[in-house]
Amino acid sequence: MKKFGGEVLLLDRDNINTDEIIPAKYLTEITKEALKPHLLEDLQLKGFDPQSKALADAKVVLTRNNFGCGSSREHAPWAFEINGINAIVAEGFARIFRQNMLNCGMLPIELPKKEITALSKLARQGKAKMSFDLKQQKLTLKAGGRSRAVAFELNDFATKLIKAGGWVAYADTVY
C-alpha cells in the first residue's frame, strides 16, 4: 500500500483538466520518471508556479470540482504519483481520472463543496499538512496551529484496490 499524507498543495479552481496536468506532447514518453518535471506545466491558475517549492514538497492536493477532466491518459495520475503525491482531496473528480487513481492504488477523496471551502480556508493559514486514517475514514488538516478533522467515504471496492496496490494486482488475485 502507498503512503498517504503530508504537505498540502491547494489548487483552488474547478475543472483542472488532464492537458493542464500533463500536456499531450509528453505522451510519447514510455516511463513515469520522464513525466516528473512536467507536472502541471500548463496549469492556468493565478499565483501557481509549476517550478515552486510548494509543488516540489507537496504530498497531497486539495482542489475543487471535476478534477482531471478530459483525456483518459493515466499519465495524469502517474505524473502526481512520480512526484510523491498519492492523495487528492476534491469536491469531485472526472470519472476516468478517479478510477485511474484507484487503479494505481492512489487515494481520491470526494467531499462536499462547503467542506472543501473550509479546508481551503484553513490551508491558507500557513504550512498545511494533511493526514489520513483509512480505517476510521477520517482526514485531518493542520495549518497555522489549528486543525480540522473531516469524515470521508470510500467504498469497499476502492479500499480493496488501495490495499492491493492497484487493479492489476487485485484483478489477478480475484478474477
Partner: peptide, 28 residues
C-alpha cells in the same frame, strides 16, 4: 481513450479507460 464513448452510437456501452483498466482488459 476518452472518446471511446463514440461507439455508443451503435447502442453499445462504450467507455474510455486508463492504461491500467486497459491492461486488465487485455489480460482478463
Amino acid at each position: 481513450d476518452s472518446h471511446t464513448c463514440t461507439h455508443g452510437a451503435f447502442g453499445a456501452f462504450a467507455a474510455g479507460v486508463g492504461t491500467t483498466d486497459l491492461e486488465v482488459g487485455i489480460l482478463k
